[in-house]
């Protein structure tokens, strides 16, 4: 075999490899993008058409403006059954890791008005709990972690504009729903605070944050 013949074969081989790589990349990207859009529409069927939350038989939380790290952490918690909810466990267990990341990023930039509807009677009490805590009951100021405006950061969730019955359900049922199984996760950080709040204090602080823009 001559030198030029060998070079030609090598060249075609390299070309073929390069071509098949870019071909694969395209194949994988196209359905992934279509798949992401359809999946997002599916999420919004339950979580509200602009991610603002919705009240069905279950309260569906607001995802709009939520921290991507938090969404990702919670989807993992549903998949690994550290967080119990029959509806979301089914939704989450078919999501691939890359889909989880892509979905989590999407909601960050949505900014619909709060869902609203919470009773307004104890908002002032709620604001005080949020900003100062209840030292006598071992409840820290929520703002210390969730931020002055309730926007959260990283694995600490945004609370601003969250659906009121959802917040009350989480804070009164923390131990039954979150941090299930033996692995210790970030839910443990909130457990004592949720435990130390009375029902009426939960309602007050939930009503306050549900109206934050």
């Amino acid at each position: 075999m001559s030198a030029t013949g060998l070079r030609l074969i090598l060249q075609t081989a390299i070309l073929a490899v390069a071509f098949s790589v870019s071909g694969h990349a395209q194949e994988r990207l196209a359905p992934a993008r279509g798949g992401l859009e359809a999946k997002l529409e599916y999420c919004k069927t339950c979580h509200g058409l602009s991610g603002q939350g919705y009240l069905g038989y279950f309260a569906m939380p607001r995802l709009a403006g939520q921290q991507p790290e938090y969404i990702e952490a919670q989807l993992r918690a549903f998949i690994e059954r550290r967080r119990s909810n029959p509806v979301m466990q089914n939704v989450a267990h078919v999501l691939s890791p890359s889909m989880v990341t892509a979905l989590a990023m999407h909601f960050k930039n949505l900014n619909p008005k709060p869902f609203g509807g919470a009773p307004r009677g104890s908002i002032a009490t709620g604001k005080k709990i949020y900003e100062e805590g209840l030292p006598e009951a071992n409840v820290p100021a929520c703002s210390a972690c969730h931020g002055n405006e309730g926007k959260g950061q990283n694995e600490i969730p945004r609370l601003a504009g969250q659906v009121y019955p959802y917040l009350v359900g989480q804070l009164t049922g923390w131990k039954q729903q979150r941090g299930q199984g033996t692995a210790v996760d970030t839910s443990a950080i909130m457990a004592p605070t949720a435990h130390n709040l009375t029902r009426s204090q939960v309602e007050a602080v939930a009503a306050y944050v549900s109206y934050l823009q």
Binding site: E41, T45, L55, Y57
Partner: peptide
């Protein structure tokens, strides 16, 4: 009860309730 998550079919239970009894304006 479960929907078909692979096909983006939602669980009806999430809104219409476990016994399809509805709630509020659902």
């Amino acid at each position: 009860m479960e929907g078909i998550p692979e096909a983006n079919i939602v669980s009806c239970y999430a809104c219409h309730g476990p016994n399809a009894e509805g709630v509020r304006d659902i």
